[in-house]
Write a protein that binds this DNA or RNA. Sequence first.
DNA 1: ATTTGGATTAACCAAATGGTTAACGACATT
DNA 2: AATGTCGTTAACCATTTGGTTAATCCAAAT
Lengths: 204, 204
Amino acid sequence: MEKDKVSEEVIMEVASQVFMEKGMAGARMQEIADRANINKAMLHYYFRSKEKLFDEVFKNAFQKFWPSVEAALLSAHKPEEVFQAIIDAYIRVLMESPYLANFILNEIQRDPDHLEKLMRETGLKPKMMLAFIESLIENGFLVKVDPREFMVNVLSLCLFPFAGQALISRLLWDNDSDSYQTFLSSRRDSIMHLIQKTYFIQQV
Amino acid sequence: MEKDKVSEEVIMEVASQVFMEKGMAGARMQEIADRANINKAMLHYYFRSKEKLFDEVFKNAFQKFWPSVEAALLSAHKPEEVFQAIIDAYIRVLMESPYLANFILNEIQRDPDHLEKLMRETGLKPKMMLAFIESLIENGFLVKVDPREFMVNVLSLCLFPFAGQALISRLLWDNDSDSYQTFLSSRRDSIMHLIQKTYFIQQV
DNA sequence: ATTTGGATTAACCAAATGGTTAACGACATT
DNA sequence: AATGTCGTTAACCATTTGGTTAATCCAAAT
């Protein structure tokens, strides 16, 4: 670890790694301290407890998880471009943080109420997205479909290949992780293609 | 717990629950013992260690996870029916074991080598599935597509809504789990519809 | 030079946790 | 009746783990 960085930042960085790899229950304060090259007591000096530290990490992760969709929505481009931007954002974020998807999925299951609190704090508004899809349907860009179903499908196609990476790359890519990375990257196009075929009404 | 059941079975049952809910690291031998109404020492009497017990649970879960695809393949019906059967199998299994998807996804990430061993023991053959898809392409039933991509898409659409259940049902279904269950069930049709639109070539 | 306040450390603590052991009881075999 | 086997229990053990404390270091302010 670089000495010039403030301890607090270094801690957050390695804590992120450890919590994401092992989850709350599996993570060890000692390991975080070791990786940050500090005494274990320093952890409690900066962040009072494991839970507090975890909360910070989780909050960070959760914000990344829901990429800046609003930006894509508000810059009123063509519908295709909006979705392309959202898909791109997801793929990009997840390729940077390979454990992110799994982390969120699991720690949410561990303590769902905690999620509810965090959602409000991060001020994320899925309803806005639903309304946008609804409007596209009314304006004849999309076929009639439950907007929530549409969203779940896009999310599924974007996130699952990351969440299941360890499994899928072994089963179907002979554990060649480079080639799997290429595949993940190529999904920008293939997911877009899929939803266009299924949900977009061809404009004349 | 019913008294008539053999201890070993009861243990496996509750161990499944606990491990699935909390994962290997989060699960406690004491809790498993309590839920099975036995002494903690009995756990070690029947299954020597936490790891051994976990292995049994994992093996069970993993077998469920890859539903009897071969059955669907070998009973040479129309292509549509084969995929419908596979999708149905996944949805059914996952509705019965809500934590299954998350459990597999995570414990695989925790110890990927362990997975490789188990795959061989359970004798699952993804290559067979790939070959089947390939043949459908050659015979003009499916558009030209990487069979692996096709598989990942189907898996994503089937599994992710379960893995992300805790998150999605809160964000998009106002935490109404009944209504979310209905949605999950309806995916049998909507996933089929999606892959038909995208990948199936209309027969004359 | 002394004080002050934050950063840092080693040593320590209590609780939790996976695992063991020795003794016991019940039931079948001899 | 004696022996042996299997299931069961309470007590115990060693280690791990999150967290604390008292002392120390160090740099800036006084």
